[in-house]
Design a binder for these strands. Structure first.
Length: 440
RNA sequence: UCCUCAGUAGCUCAAUGGUAGAGCAUUCGGCUGUUAACCGAAGGGUUGUAGGUUCGAGUCCUACCUGAGGAGCCA
């Protein structure tokens, strides 16, 4: 085809804007249905899916034959006229006039993911190809929407994005769940499990800050809620109390759900998500103390003891009566990290809050108010058996203009799994990293 | 780390201890409106690995390997 004859190149999502025009669309063959004299190649281009029609009597013999011989996921550029067509999925159809085959997938080694069912092991082994399927495409479009909504909310509420390091010399919280990096000679270095301690430093410099990036937990967990590498957004605010933290977490969640409902209805439909459950997500969320939560759990038959953390089934039980995320605060100080501010009126509980997602998706947010008094922080570090010298700079923050402050971490993949209504977080990230799976 | 379950054709799965099977995918043929298209035919197997019991093992036993779900722990 000479450059002069070249048609305007569009993407499938724009098809409705070009009805009656002859256009060129680059993409991949999603599927092909054919009979003797008519063929329906279905084109996929990353923005949508479009059915094309090739009629034998209206095309050169060789062109019709090459359409009939197309194989799944061959890369092709189609040219033709766009038409409204109620029989076609999506409502538009392209009358094929020309076909350029960039690469024809050979039938000796056909595309492995067929339109029929596959097991999870096979799909995860072929994750690099699985990403092309409709469901995965929908999930990852929603992931993008959620990430963007999180940034938009924080950016428009005075937060500054300040990235925190992935290599860290000390544990932020626990000490047993760190990935060690064997490279640095002068000291032991690990992959971050939270950017929070650094956020406290940047919050004292910028007021309201956040970090949004990957975190790593070497927990030998093997459940539908766990990844070894996952993304977390962590806002932190100077001059903030537990109540401020709870309010921001609530507003952020409401905003994110609203954005997905506004912009990703089609993707939710592909996932067959019950959107009425999402439309219900409005402030205020139910709030309860840890004490009240334990009492409620006892009523529901749980055998949880005061002082213990919630198990997976406890989290589900707590959420089941409300169709909203539930905020639980004032956990026992003993089970929380050393930096959590004890309640001044009741030091055995800490000013921390967890947000539990509805429908059994578990904890999506954890946070609270941090200790701002130097003496108290030093005492807590000692009580946890931690070396003061590892936290020298962190302790410094309490020496130079310390203020009450707090923040939280929100797990991106758990949010996506909840909003999409997925069984497992492994589908919420392009290339999941799990206990027994690091490829592709 | 512990508990439970699974491994048979490229994929999803059948097969009472007695000749290894189907659907999809692939190839060939048919079909002018298909919607995971349909109809007919063909090719395709070291039943995860190694031992054992048995006249005979995909099936029973032991160990190992690989994976899945869950517990603990966590977002």
């Amino acid at each position: 085809m000479t450059p002069a004859a070249r048609r305007p190149r569009i993407s499938i999502v724009q098809a409705g804007l070009h009805v009656g025009e002859t256009v060129e669309i680059p993409g991949w063959l999603y599927n092909l249905r054919r009979s003797g004299k008519i063929a329906f190649p279905i084109l996929r281009d990353g923005t949508g899916i479009l059915q094309c029609v090739a009629v034998k009597s209206q095309l050169p013999e060789s062109l019709f034959e090459s359409v009939k011989g197309l194989t799944q996921e061959s890369s092709i550029i189609v040219t033709g006229r766009i038409r409204q067509e109620p029989r076609a999925p999506g409502g538009y159809e392209l009358d094929l006039e020309n076909l350029e085959i960039f690469q024809r997938v050979p039938e000796a080694e056909p595309y492995p993911i067929t339109p029929k069912e596959h097991g999870i092991d096979f799909l995860l082994d072929h994750r690099h190809l699985w990403l092309r399927s409709r469901r995965q495409h929908a999930v990852l479009k929603i992931r993008h929407e959620i990430s963007r909504a999180i940034r938009d909310y924080l950016d428009s509420h005075g937060f500054t994005l300040l990235d925190t390091p992935v290599f860290t010399p000390a544990a932020c919280e626990g000490t047993t769940t760190l990935f060690e990096v064997n490279y640095f000679d002068h000291e032991k270095v690990y992959l971050t499990q939270s950017g929070q301690l650094y956020n406290e430093a940047t919050a004292m410099a910028f007021g309201k800050v956040y970090t949004f990036g990957p975190t790593f937990r070497a927990e030998r967990s093997k459940t539908r809620r766990h990844l070894t590498e996952f993304w977390m957004v962590e806002p932190e605010m100077a001059y903030a109390t537990l109540e401020d933290v709870k309010q921001v977490a609530e507003e952020l969640i409401v905003f994110v759900v609203g954005r997905v409902l506004e912009n990703r209805r089609a993707e939710l439909a592909v996932l067959e998500r019950d959107v009425s459950k999402l439309e219900n997500i409005k402030a205020p969320f139910p709030r309860m103390s840890y004490d009240q939560a334990v009492e409620l759990l006892h009523q529901k038959g749980s055998e949880i003891q005061w002082g213990a953390d919630f198990g997976g089934t406890d989290e589900t039980l707590l959420g089941e009566d409300f169709n909203l995320p539930v905020m639980v605060d004032r956990f026992p100080t003993a089970i929380k990290a050393f930096y959590m501010q004890p309640d001044p009126e009741r030091p055995e509980v800490a000013l921390g809050v967890d947000v539990l997602a509805p429908e059994g998706y578990g904890e999506i947010v954890g946070g609270g108010q941090r200790i701002h008094e130097l003496d108290l922080l030093l005492r807590r570090i000692d009580e946890h058996g931690l070396p003061r010298e590892a936290f020298d700079w962190y302790i410094d923050l309490r020496r130079f203009g310390t203020v009450p402050h707090g923040g939280f971490g929100m797990g991106l993949e758990r949010c996506i799994a909840w909003i999409c209504g997925l069984e497992h977080v492994r589908e919420t990230i392009p290339f999941p990293r799990m206990l027994y799976r690091t490829r592709p």
